[in-house]
Write a protein that binds this DNA or RNA. Sequence first.
DNA 1: CGGCTTTGACCCGCGC
DNA 2: GCGCGGGTCAAAGCCG
Length: 345
Amino acid sequence: MEQQKKEEEKRSENFMANLTFTDEISASFAASAGSSIFDDKWGSLGFMDLLGINQDFSSPSLFDSLIQSPFIPPPPLPAAPAPTPAAAPLQKQQEVQQQALPSPASTVPESSEVLNTTAPTTPNSISISSSSNEEQSKGGDEEEQEQDDQKNKNNLKPKKKNQKRQREPRFAFMTKSEVDHLDDGYRWRKYGQKAVKNSPYPRSYYRCTTARCGVKKRVERSSDDTTIVVTTYEGQHMHPCPITPRGSMGMLPDNSGYGAAVAASVPFVVPQPHYLHQQQQPFLINPSTSLNITGSSSFNHPTSFPSLIQERLVFSPSMAPSVLVRDGLLQDIVPSQMRNEKKEG
DNA sequence: CGGCTTTGACCCGCGC
DNA sequence: GCGCGGGTCAAAGCCG
């Protein structure tokens, strides 16, 4: 165990990750939001927020604006990926205080499904996608959900027939990594594993070990590109990140009383054009461009991303708009186009 | 001993 | 109704 961890950490140090976003994703967002991606609704949200990694960035140029954004939603999902013990020291520790301002998260479309596909042309890339299950309860029914959850736990049968299982919003991202289970700072307990159809790799199910935190995480490896790991989060942490010393992360939803709003919101944020500008890559506008946030300055804080996801973010708009993440299933997450391309190539 | 993983069984929703 | 596949449970085992 210990050794394994160390190995992973070691690997993480050398890890280079690309994160890709597609303009279609944005399109999806815009469409579902019924407004332009440039609206405050979306435009002010940072995708890093989504990951809950909006802290400890060593790249002010890119993230400052993000963080200073008036509408930074609390990380609906994995709050702040905690520092990987081995990786943390490597960074400048440029701590950025997140401004947990109340966000318009509640205005976010609750049933939007967003995909973020990745064009894994480079090694170690991540792609982010988010989905809010269309079946999921409409927003504010957190209580109801909890009750339902309880029902399910205490008694599996008494579920009403006409009551579809409600699901938390989901958020998925693809990561190029040798390691399946990325360390995002939270503690997870594996509760299941299933073979994945058409894939030699199993899908693992994890649950946040924090008491009363129902956040789940699903990890599977792409069958097309075995270097791609698809991680799907379901639900939102309403507690501080257990590993984060500052606890500044988890603090968001918790202390701000923002929980309900967050719960009711889509756990996804989209890259904000204005900060992307700073990278001089208006990927949202020009579908043919690819924003590579890599570089000397940007994203190289190991502690600010699921342990192995670092350094390279590539926003690459090139996928089919119809590709939306649905239920976080790999086959849905990975755009067919991309998969086809991979097969061809 | 507590926490975690493994793994087979089971439940449930959905499509045919 | 049936079969399939996704998701979850829970007992057993492992490990520090």
